[in-house]
Design a protein around this nucleic acid. Structure first.
Length: 504
RNA sequence: GGCCCGUUCGUCUAGGGGUCAGGACACGUCCCUUUCACGGAUGAAACACGGGUUCGAUUCCCGUACGGGCUACCA
């Protein structure tokens, strides 16, 4: 019988969760939903030196904003496998138990080497022209561990609480193979793998041990993570094997990385000219916060949609999809192997698509907030009409402002090109007459204005619409002119014309 | 350096032994609109290279090149 699908997102709280991490969480979530399984959030805080204040809370908030909430785990209500924080699980002694089991079966050993001794070994190896020195089946023979030290000496050191780690005893020249769901068979010779530390001298497990123990204990069916874990996967297979748990080992899926748009490599928060965090992230060690997608004006649905299509596609040409839709379509056989460069332009386009799907009312209430932040108060109907007029010109709500400042504030400058080309005494005379006609209009709607304008042209000759637009708005382009005039209102329109004619 | 993973338009990608190699973003042109945008139409734009296998390879295999990842008592 197939195992129930249980997947986990297991970040370490060493900083803000960036978009790559969110994408990993997203694929886990989609896979779980697709198969009616569970999605778990586990916090891998086994490195106390890298702990960052606020990071865990950030991870939880970011997932919530994205709408990809786990149904079990830290910040989302405990489940049957609590606790979900590895530092707390360590207190339960579960990692030690598994490490001891490996010691007992001879697949792990104690190592007493100090940092200095490790450093010396590396230097020696480098002197011998070894580029990447490893603690492995060859070098361990010259180090201080339970494989080289006499038994009673080991016992004495242990009894004296000498600082030590537990290392995995990786066999010599063995072929290790495993099948990755995305990449197929991967084969590595064990000589390439170092004797990984399983339990650190502070008693904490390393990632290698901890995630395996937890995946087993939490009955995880699929371990879905970034490609950066691929090189250590063979070591993980060995650990499962030596624990006698190879049959229960989760299936592995290594996701392609999200790459920088220009140049190459993983996205870096420092160089990027686009947000890399879902929400603004203020690192306690940094002076300036990193602005997030949320604060940049992205809809969470758009953000998540963009991320999903970085490395996955539904097989047809569909691009705009809700989380539910994606979840019904998702599978690993449609996940790419190659890394994907992030395209900030396309991200904006995605947001534009979602903006258009919003109702005018909801856009208006969003934009009302922007106006209020600028100290401008208008009634809801006015804002609604304004939004209707300019919505198809913007990709973000905040752009409503730039797109139509002149609706709220009379222009102080006038498009130079249009002015030099079109403003002349003849036009001044003409627009003075237009001004008079406008003044005498009793009803001020787009339709009436349009009709009156048609009549006016038969009497006065051709009237340049763009010139009128510049007089009213200062800029050369914008929404339908009569709609615009109707929105601005008679009083304000003639006031602006009057002022313009006086000063030009 | 070693090991692992990868390589279709500039970017995200579809496809997969015989296709005019399809779509999307961005870009160009035209239409619509007395403007801008939206929309519509259209254009330019790709199978990294070299060997096999095959009647036929972009597709399968092997090399090469290039890119990425890993190479900690970090995850």
């Amino acid at each position: 019988m197939e195992k129930r699908v249980r997947v986990r997102f297991a970040p370490s709280p060493t900083g803000g969760l960036h978009m790559g991490g969110v994408r990993t969480a997203l694929f886990n979530y989609l896979f779980a939903k697709r198969h009616g399984g569970d999605f778990i959030l586990r916090i891998e805080d086994t490195d106390q030196t890298r702990f960052v204040e606020g990071a865990e809370e950030y991870i939880v908030n970011a997932l919530k904003w994205c709408g990809i909430s786990p149904n079990e785990g830290v910040g989302f209500g405990d489940g049957p496998h609590k606790p979900y924080r590895q530092s707390e699980r360590k207190e339960l002694g579960i990692y030690k138990k598994y490490a001891d089991k490996l010691i007992a079966s001879g697949h792990a050993y104690y190592a007493f080497d100090s940092n200095e001794e490790l450093e010396e070994m590396r230097k020696r190896m480098e002197a011998a022209k070894v580029v990447a020195p490893q603690y492995n089946n060859v070098t361990r023979q010259n180090m201080r561990n339970s494989l080289t030290l006499p038994e009673d000496e080991v016992k004495r050191l242990l009894d004296a609480n000498t600082p030590h780690v537990i290392r995995l005893k990786v066999p010599r020249n063995e072929e290790i193979r495993f099948e990755d769901i995305i990449r197929g068979w991967v084969i590595v010779n064990s000589n390439q793998i170092d004797d990984k530390v399983l339990l650190k001298s502070d008693g904490m497990p390393t990632y290698h041990l901890a995630h395996i123990v937890d995946d087993i204990e939490m009955q995880i069916s699929h371990a879905v993570r970034g490609e950066e874990w691929l090189p250590s996967a063979p070591a993980h297979v060995l650990i499962y094997r030596y624990l006698g748990l190879e049959a229960e080992m989760p299936k592995l899926a290594h996701l392609p990385l999200i790459l920088n748009p220009d140049g190459n490599g993983k996205i870096s928060k420092r160089e990027a000219r686009f947000p890399v965090f879902p929400l603004s992230w203020k690192d306690p060690r940094e002076a300036e916060p990193f602005i997030g997608y949320k604060e940049s004006g992205y809809y969470p649905e758009a953000f998540v949609n963009i991320l999903a299509l970085l490395g996955w596609n539904p097989g047809d040409n569909k691009e705009i999809m809700s989380l539910t839709e994606m979840a019904s379509l998702f599978d690993f056989d449609r996940v790419n192997k190659a890394g994907a460069k992030f395209d900030p332009d396309k991200a904006k386009w995605f947001n534009q698509q979602y903006l258009r799907m919003q109702s005018d009312e909801s856009l208006a209430s969003e934009f009302k907030l922007v106006l209020e932040s600028k100290g401008i108060k208008r009634d809801n109907e006015f804002i609604l009409q304004f939004c209707k007029l300019v919505k198809e010109k913007v990709q973000f709500t905040k752009e409503f402002w730039n797109e139509g400042v002149y609706v709220f504030e009379a222009p102080v400058s006038f498009d130079e090109k249009v002015m030099t080309k079109k403003w002349n005494p003849t036009n001044k005379e003409l627009f003075t007459k237009v001004y008079q006609r406008f003044k005498n209009l009793d009803i001020w709607t787009a339709v009436v204005l349009h009709d009156d304008f048609t009549v006016a042209q038969t009497e006065l000759g051709k009237i340049d619409m763009q010139m009128l637009r510049v007089i009213i708005s200062g800029v050369a382009g914008g929404p339908q002119l009569f709609d615009l005039l109707a929105l601005i209102g008679k009083e304000e329109t003639i006031k602006r014309m009057d002022h313009f004619l006086q000063t030009h």
